Amino acid sequence: MLNATLSLIATDGIEQVTIRKIAALAGSNVALINYYFGSKEKLIGEAIKVQFDSFREAFSALENREVDSLTRLKSFLLQILSSLQEHPELMKRLVGQGQESMSESQAEYVSFFKTKGFEQIRATLEEITGETNAKVTSAMMQQIFAAIFSPAFRSACARKQAGADDDREFLTNVSVEEQVDLFFNHYFYRYLA
């Protein structure tokens, strides 16, 4: 039921998801969904929580001290991008809402991201660059997200709307990983030399 809900959110958009559509896709029935989840909103909330947990898991890449800091950052970004491309509607919903209209699971993820998540990224950027000023590393974080996530997010949304296959590429015929490598080579060039 959760996978069916996520699939429908990705294809139809969260506002178009109905209990009947979920039941049909899951091979279930409306009564069973209501029994286990109580309402469409609770089911959608649980499905979103599952997806946000995968976003949270991406942060574990930043903790892997067996690889260098640049490799950790790249792994983190690629994992987030993968989730983003699978379910751009969820990220759009998360980014596009004020804190007061978020579900509990959305608010929990935003809270995690603002506390532990940002700190992990900032610490990784400190390792890469040697920069200790939190304002500078925060600005770097914003620049990285804008440069990498914005085109990927827009492309994923466009692909989902057009019904095109998810080919893990955005805006060009260069893979996402190649895009990240290109960005890193330019953005971190003075630290890589």
Rank of each mutant, 00 (worst) to 15 (best):
M1W: 00
M1D: 04
L2R: 03
N3I: 04
A4M: 01
A4K: 00
S7Q: 13
L8Q: 01
I9P: 07
I9H: 09
D12H: 03
I19H: 01
K21S: 11
K21V: 03
A23L: 02
A26L: 02
G27Y: 01
G27T: 09
S28V: 10
V30Q: 10
V30A: 06
A31N: 13
L32H: 13
I33W: 00
Y36V: 10
F37H: 06
S39Q: 04
S39E: 02
S39Y: 02
E46R: 13
E46M: 09
K49L: 12
V50Q: 13
Q51K: 14
F52V: 08
D53W: 02
F55H: 09
R56W: 06
R56I: 06
A58K: 05
A58C: 10
A58R: 05
F59E: 05
S60Y: 14
L62D: 05
E63Q: 15
N64L: 09
R72G: 06
S75P: 02
L78G: 07
L78P: 07
L78W: 06
L84T: 02
L84F: 02
L84I: 03
H87G: 03
E89F: 00
M91K: 09
Q99K: 11
E100L: 13
S101D: 15
S105A: 15
Q106L: 06
A107M: 08
E108W: 07
V110S: 03
F112P: 01
F112G: 00
F113C: 07
K114A: 11
G117N: 01
G117E: 01
E119F: 11
Q120A: 13
A123P: 08
E126C: 11
T129Y: 00
N133C: 11
N133R: 14
K135R: 07
T137P: 04
T137H: 03
T137S: 09
T137L: 05
T137Q: 05
Q142W: 05
Q143H: 12
A147W: 04
A147S: 15
I148A: 11
F149D: 09
F149I: 12
P151C: 03
R154T: 06
R154L: 12
S155Y: 02
S155N: 06
A156K: 07
A156Q: 11
A156V: 01
Q161I: 13
A162W: 06
A164H: 11
D165I: 15
D165P: 10
D165E: 15
D167T: 15
R168F: 14
E169F: 12
V174A: 14
V174E: 14
V176Q: 14
Q179I: 10
Q179C: 15
F183P: 01
F183K: 00
Y187A: 08
Y191H: 14
L192N: 07
